[in-house]
Design a protein around this nucleic acid. Structure first.
Length: 676
RNA sequence: GCCGCCUUAGCUCAGUCGGUAGAGCGGUUCACUCGUAAUGAACAGGUCGACAGUUCGAUUCUGUCAGGCGGCUCCA
């Protein structure tokens, strides 16, 4: 990765500023990373004046050098990228006709794209895993060689995709822009080829494989050890464009050790156990009947409880926060979406029109146009602002068949959508209000770890966005300032804005560290103009409001999916479809527990009793599998004492709790939205 | 939408190298059942995703479509 602009480095610091544990060294005479750190097995490359270099590359005098270990982010990238090279070597060893695409490191692993006549099968992957293991075991050396463009073209004459990358570089485009990951192959500086050498240093040494690559690499394939495994293969468009040919991409994972690989595989297994699609079926929450159509969920009674409780709570909180609950239809004449400006941008993702009595109607894909009509239904005074309209809007989006996925990507969804109409002066306070409100709501549902993404217009694509540069700059500043005030991490997303204005989106981390995009706050100065929205100002003039869109969860369906995975189906009491399951030790105690259940129901608790003729142990098993927060057990000892015994989902137990206390305890757990 | 794989009972899956199918769980019934993750037995349940084609015969082979899974692209 030579000569590429890189993040600030320690060369900018005076020696006294260096607080990191890794010491830097300033070279006085030419040397190499291997000379400096050769005795440290965990050092895989060096950072020379902020850029990563191979260990055996000669470093000039006067450079600031620091070691990069295999377990730090840069070191892991090097490890994974080197694994990608081994994969490519294995592929061409088995199939010399395979043409190379690109092979960058990605989160937790790497991939490499190949143009091959036949897609890879699972058996192919097994064979490749074995071939890779052999290459790793034989300890090939990665050797860097600088080449001219002419030399590179000659050596890579048989690799059309590599030649294309050289061409991109030659044309002066930024390789990073040209193809996601292509910068791994061709940097912005000199061209290099990496050779894999068998028996390096010996007379018999042979170059067994080579690839155009900016590097750097591990010194030796042996370092990959037993931490590498191929995961799957899939197709991917060359350079990320659907206009280009499809290549076959092989994904792998790579870790510094076998144990870390195993830990990663265990994390994947845990994610699979939590998969909301699996739990949704097991817990009888929802389904996607083929007869209805792809991406259109139905909620079963237990899933319906969760959805209703979520909605009830969110509606109540909105009302407390000054929102007015409104209702709008699922369908409208399509002129409305021309007025709003949506149709030219989103026609592809709206269901096609239906012709009724000479008018074209469309299923609603967004709620804002209808809320605008509510605003416009009569004259508005500045005294009414901020005017906040909120509803659970059912919207339908024609998502392409390949992207529909569980509850997280559907074609029919319920948005917890609000639109605040404010004066331009009120906008910053309202954005702040919405953002804090959203974060507090998410915390009530048990999510506590957030970062924000701020999506702005992309000047390179003027056709995608509406409005003047000044309006965009002003709107972006409002969002930026409020987002900064939260103290949360801010990630820029240039080009990610809606056509009508910039947005902040909230990303939440779940219990196993995955992030999900949830709510958004969007600043819109375009639709008020399109709809001619006005209010009367104190001086009697007509003024244009700004509208601020906000969905707190994004969609109820997706958020339910996130919650199912976050809690692994073990919901906090207030959300659990069944909060209490009473299990009599024997039939003789049925009536005793029926009475307890009746007392709980009188307090609004979702309590059931297991009156089946299963044996006691089986009933415990069933209760456990249902993930009910409180299992209440009663037998002779409990009944005599006027008590019940609690059994919790982790198997722990609290025996002999007086019935009145038990009811109070359960009611309190629901009221406090407690997890038990 | 694109590429690959998949679709057999409510669920999870066997199976048929072309002669219309099985298990476990779940369901129903009966018997049993007084303390912490499976009591036993019997019964019911399937146009083998849909539609074409090849064939004496298709759940099995071929094609198209639908749905699912994994990616790519997209995601107001």
């Amino acid at each position: 990765m030579s000569d590429v602009a890189s993040p600030p480095t320690r060369q900018d610091l005076t020696p006294g500023d260096v607080t990191e544990t890794e010491a830097t060294t300033t070279t006085t005479v030419p040397t190499t990373g291997a000379d400096l750190y050769g005795d440290r097995k965990d050092v895989v490359v060096v950072r020379v004046d902020g850029t990563l270099w191979d260990l055996d590359r000669e470093i000039p005098g006067g450079a600031v050098v620091e070691p990069v270990t295999i377990d730090e982010p840069d070191g892991l990238d090097v490890l994974r990228h080197s694994a990608a090279h081994v994969l490519a070597q294995a592929v061409q060893q088995i199939n010399p006709e395979a043409k190379l695409g690109i092979g960058p490191p990605v989160k937790d692993g790497f991939y490499y794209d190949f143009d091959v006549a036949e897609p890879f099968t699972p058996d192919d992957l097994k064979a490749l895993d074995k071939a890779m293991a052999r290459i790793i075991k034989e300890g090939q050396t990665f050797r860097r060689r600088v080449v001219t463009e002419e030399e590179a073209r000659a050596e890579l004459a048989g690799e059309p995709y590599k030649l294309e990358l050289i061409g991109i570089k030659g044309s002066g485009d930024d390789a990073e822009e040209a193809a996601d990951g292509a910068s791994v192959e061709v940097g912005a500086g000199e061209l290099t080829i990496y050779e894999n050498v068998r028996g390096a240093g010996r007379e018999s040494e042979t170059v067994v494989w080579k690839d155009l690559c900016r590097g750097p690499h591990l010194p030796n394939t042996k370092i990959l050890g037993q931490g590498v495994k191929l995961m799957r293969s899939a197709a991917a468009y060359w350079r990320g464009s659907e206009k280009n040919p499809m290549l076959q991409r092989v994904y792998g994972t790579a870790w510094p050790s076998k144990d870390e690989l195993k830990a990663y595989q265990e994390r994947l297994a845990e994610a699979e156990r939590r998969d909301h699609r699996r739990l949704g079926t097991e817990m009888d929450l929802f389904s996607f009947p083929d007869e209805i159509g792809s991406g259109l969920p139905v909620f079963h009674p237990k899933g319906g409880v969760i959805k209703r409780v979520m909605e009830d709570y969110v509606r109540q909180r909105h009302i407390e926060e000054g929102f007015d609950y409104v209702g709008t239809p699922h369908i409208s004449k399509e002129g409305l979406f021309h007025t709003s400006g949506h149709l030219p941008y989103y026609a592809d993702t709206m269901f096609p029109p239906m012709d009724l009595e000479g008018s074209e109607y469309r299923l609603k894909a967004m709620n804002c146009p209808m809320h605008n009509l509510i605003f416009r239904s009569r004259g508005r005074s500045y005294r009414e602002l901020p005017l906040r309209l909120f509803e659970f809007g059912s919207v339908y989006r024609y998502e392409k068949s390949g992207v529909v996925q569980g509850l997280t990507r559907v074609r029919g969804l319920t948005q917890d959508d609000s639109h605040s109409y404010v004066t331009p002066d009120q906008a910053p306070a309202e954005v702040k209000h919405l953002l804090n409100f959203m974060l507090s709501l998410l915390k009530d549902f048990g999510l506590n770890d957030f970062y924000l993404e701020i999506s702005t217009r992309d000047h390179a694509k003027p056709g995608k966005f509406v409005g003047s540069d000044e309006d965009w700059a002003a709107a972006t500043k409002v969002l930026q300032d409020v987002a900064t005030e939260t103290g949360l991490e801010l990630v820029p997303d240039p080009g990610g804005a809606a056509f009508y204005g910039p947005k902040i989106s909230v990303q939440a981390k779940d219990a196993i560290g995955r992030t999900w995009q949830l709510g958004t706050v969007q600043y819109d100065f375009n639709q008020p103009e399109g709809f001619g929205l006005e209010y009367t100002a104190p001086d009697g003039t007509k003024q244009r409001p700004v509208m601020i869109h906000s969905a707190k969860f994004g969609s109820i369906e997706r958020f339910m999916g996130v919650l199912i995975e976050h809690y692994a189906g073990q919901f906090p009491v207030w959300l659990a479809p069944v909060q209490v399951l009473a299990v009599p030790v024997a039939e003789a105690f049925d009536d005793y527990l029926k009475d307890v259940v009746a007392q709980l129901k009188a307090q609004g608790i979702r309590a059931e009793i297991d009156l089946s003729d299963d044996r006691f142990a089986k009933k415990i098993r069933n209760a456990s599998k249902q993930k009910v927060p409180f299992t209440l057990i009663a037998g002779g000892e409990d009944a005599e004492a006027g008590a019940v015994s609690f059994r919790f989902r982790d198997g722990t137990q609290e025996n002999g709790v007086l019935v009145a206390e038990a009811v109070e305890k359960i009611v309190a757990a629901v009221r406090d939205r407690a997890q038990v």
